[in-house]
Design a protein around this nucleic acid. Structure first.
Lengths: 190, 190
DNA sequence: GCGACCCATTCCACTAGTGCCATGGTCCTG
DNA sequence: CAGGACCATGGCACTAGTGGAATGGGTCGC
């Protein structure tokens, strides 16, 4: 998930300055991408402007740097939609934000496109759950450094438990979401 | 969380070849780091060998490339332990693997060091939960591209719900783990 | 006896991201 | 009236990671 696409998505909802974008990723967008650097935002913005994916209006500010309000061009929107509605390959770890990122831009999708993504995610996580079960792990330290095997076994056992619980829970949520989309239950609700 | 540290941790448990390490991150270590490239593993291994953090024994294989079995040196172990037991700054997103990574190497820690990490994580997530509640988000599309506001509101609402449920659940697990460590319940169990 | 897959290392060009700092303004607060 | 937060842009050196391919075995099954 490139910063590029996230920026296009955010700008697609609301034209912003580089500063606004940075602020967004520090606050409500933090679950999409954390630790976003100023420099990175501006660098990507410059590149996208060169490629014609975004344009900006300059608001002159006497003395200080001008403020540039960026907006997505039709070409940029095409690039963004190609990513958003293009093939979704669920990442190996259910927790990384690929899926969440796409869902948070679901306003740009049709319900059919959304369903395709949800279905792909669901299939991947069901597979994953099966593989988690027939997976034994042994912990042995052979390297001669001080290592508390008993503690390691107990804690990693718990981590594995947490992991598969999370996947199960995620699957249940996806099933519920899927049904709600199909039944039109996402319409006309608070 | 640098690949460096993960490699040192894994090698600290079991000396391995570069290939073994890559395989590990593709299978049981996949929750620590996904999509690990061969080239990256070998590059980091070379650098660490230069710095004296690891050494290797060469097993000659006639015709083909020699196989090198890497192991951690005392200096490397020091570097690793400095990271592992050094200050833990919980990442903004509860889901990224910093915490999990440290816990999976808990065999190298004392129970006190483990507790410090768990406590830091717990404090961070409790703060986060408070901030999640007084956080209103409004979704408006002002950019003129086709945008289904109703769908977006419904789905992002659900995402937010999922997110805060996850944090709550994570906190409960941490509390339970904390108590179990303190009560010595991680000892002598299956 | 060949294709597929495993073992094992290395190189190369490239892209993305980090961390830190400089500039220069406004507005608020104690 | 100083200090800090906020607004806004940008430069620089650096590090880490991606993606792909070349090399050259070995083993297993069909």
């Amino acid at each position: 998930m490139k910063l590029e696409h996230l920026l296009l998505g955010v700008l697609g909802m609301r034209p912003s300055t580089g500063y606004d974008l940075k602020k967004f990723f520090d606050t409500s967008g933090r679950y999409l991408r954390s630790n976003t650097q100023m420099s990175q935002v501006y660098r990507v913005l410059h590149r996208m402007a060169d490629q014609g994916w975004v344009t900006y209006d300059v608001e002159p500010r006497q003395g200080a740097q001008d403020a540039k309000t960026y907006r997505v061009t039709p070409e940029g929107m095409t690039v963004f939609l190609d990513w958003l509605t293009g093939p979704y390959l669920p990442p190996f770890r259910a927790r990384d934000p690929e899926f969440t990122a796409r869902l948070s831009f679901c306003g740009f999708m049709t319900e059919e496109q959304l369903l395709r993504i949800v279905d792909a995610e669901l299939a991947a996580r069901r597979d994953q759950l099966i593989q988690l079960h027939d997976h034994e792990r042994t912990i042995v330290s052979e390297a001669g450094y001080s290592f508390d095997v008993e503690l390691a076994v107990a804690v990693t056992g718990r981590l594995a438990e947490w992991g598969s619980d999370d996947v199960e829970r995620h699957i249940q949520r996806l099933e519920r979401l899927r049904e709600d989309i199909l039944a039109g239950r996402l319409r006309n609700q608070a």
